[in-house]
Design a protein around this nucleic acid. Structure first.
Lengths: 256, 256
DNA sequence: AGAATAGTGTCTGTAAGACATTATGAC
DNA sequence: GTCATAATGTCTTACAGACACTATTCT
């Protein structure tokens, strides 16, 4: 280790107590990057994976579609997930979404205004119980069909890349967790759940394997009710009380 | 969707072009949280998992130990990993660390100065080729032994919680990846690598299983050289060219 | 020879994949 | 009855765990 002769000098230039230091502290002494939160909000319906996008009413990228996001409100948000939750409720009205942090991107170039950081969350919403709400700076809002991690709309900022990476993460995680249950209504059939798995991983899963896997996980319980649409009625299951995501020890490998 | 009568008014109050908007833009119009990057720097030696900590020279939490971190330098860092890399080189001199983003924590309370965000990376360093460098605002720097995700030193801010969560993530990920290879010198024995796995997951692994797993992954190649310490010499392996982390389809389950 | 570490052989157990079969309802 | 969807039976395959065994060096 090096020896700093001027060490004492450096220290005595500082206030002696933390209290004094905090009193003198000015948050504008150093430039800070802008800090946003963006959410990739997924839902599965019509046999397709969809993502919620909003049309930007303001510059930059005015009139482009983008992920649902906004700036941290230093007065009203107590933490980052608060910001994500607030924006999500504003746009969808859903109050108890599954929200998970995906990644944080921060660099000089992603926003023309300069250094900016965004923390990306993803949300899983069941189809039912969503009512889209326009306004709040968004000219429009809609579900966009996802194919191969992409939507046909050109998105603002680096949102195309974020969406692609996040969708890959979702797919990878679906191979070893029970995440897709969060995309289902409260009561659902095993075959319904399997279809959602298959849509996300874009691959067929063996019927028997899938049932074994989920039933052995011991996270579902029969409701006693049956779904009577289609031919033979199917058992309706629901998630057991212990609400957490289940992690399987082995990945689904995908047929063929 | 709702109908906003006053919608047009809102829009026309904005500049018409993105160019004009950017010209008028003032980054200080809104308060921003402070934005840091902290790294959990791991290394395994003396049959223990260690983490690098530095003693804080400045308020707040002066004289507390903390993770290696610092603020984003808007002039010189082009992205967040740049900031992490720069701090890591400053402290250890290591230029090609394995660095992976772990998580971002942002809230009102973690820093007494107010709303602050930190993006946490973790680094894996081989024991060899590390020279600790003091200075740069740190009075001291050292490797702290990790037991159960904790160090005996009381850390600044929420670094105890970050360290614990990050170490859990590391452990979990070691169960299904080849991550620990990044903790090894260029040439290493399979038994040496196994010991590092065992130290991180804090569990024994069956010898035969481990060799099968790593050799079948086809990510290692024999160097032809032997390690001559101990009794029977052991084959020295190195990572094949394709440098990426291997993901196994099944987790290690831990003996007993 | 004996100790210590490196490395193999081989059996068991578990859960995924494949796919044939049976069950239950609508028509 | 036929059709469609729900659900089971059961064989194969892949790979982790257990553990006995052999191999190579040192003293």
């Amino acid at each position: 280790m090096r020896n700093f002769h001027n060490y004492k000098v450096m220290v005595t230039l500082q206030p002696d107590t933390e209290k004094q230091f905090l009193k003198d502290y000015n948050p504008n002494d150093f430039d800070r990057p802008s800090t946003a939160v963006d959410s990739v909000i997924y839902s599965v319906f019509d046999d397709e994976l969809h993502v919620l996008i909003v049309k930007r009413a303001n510059h930059p990228f005015r009139d482009y579609w983008s992920l649902v996001g906004g700036y941290v409100d230093l007065q009203n948000d107590t933490d980052l997930i608060d910001t994500a939750m607030r924006k999500l409720i504003e746009k969808t009205g859903v109050k108890t979404p599954y929200l998970e942090q995906f990644n944080t991107i921060g660099n000089k170039t992603r926003d023309p205004r300069g250094w900016s950081i965004t923390t990306v969350y993803f949300a899983l919403l069941p189809v039912d119980s969503i009512t889209l709400e326009a306004g709040h700076g968004a000219q429009d809002i809609k579900w966009a069909k996802l194919t191969n991690g992409k939507v046909k709309e050109k998105l603002a900022f680096d949102h195309d890349a974020i969406l692609k990476a996040c969708t890959k993460r979702l797919r990878d995680k679906v191979l070893y967790t029970s995440l897709p249950i969060h995309l289902m209504p409260e009561k659902f059939t095993l075959n319904g759940l399997q279809r959602v798995y298959e849509i996300i991983i874009d691959n067929k899963i063996d019927h028997k394997s899938f049932r074994r896997r989920l039933l052995n996980a011991d996270i579902l319980e029969e409701t006693g009710e049956m779904q009577k649409t289609g031919r033979r009625p199917a058992m309706l299951y629901k998630l057991k009380k212990s609400n957490e995501t289940f992690f399987f020890l082995r990945n689904l490998e995908g047929s063929q």
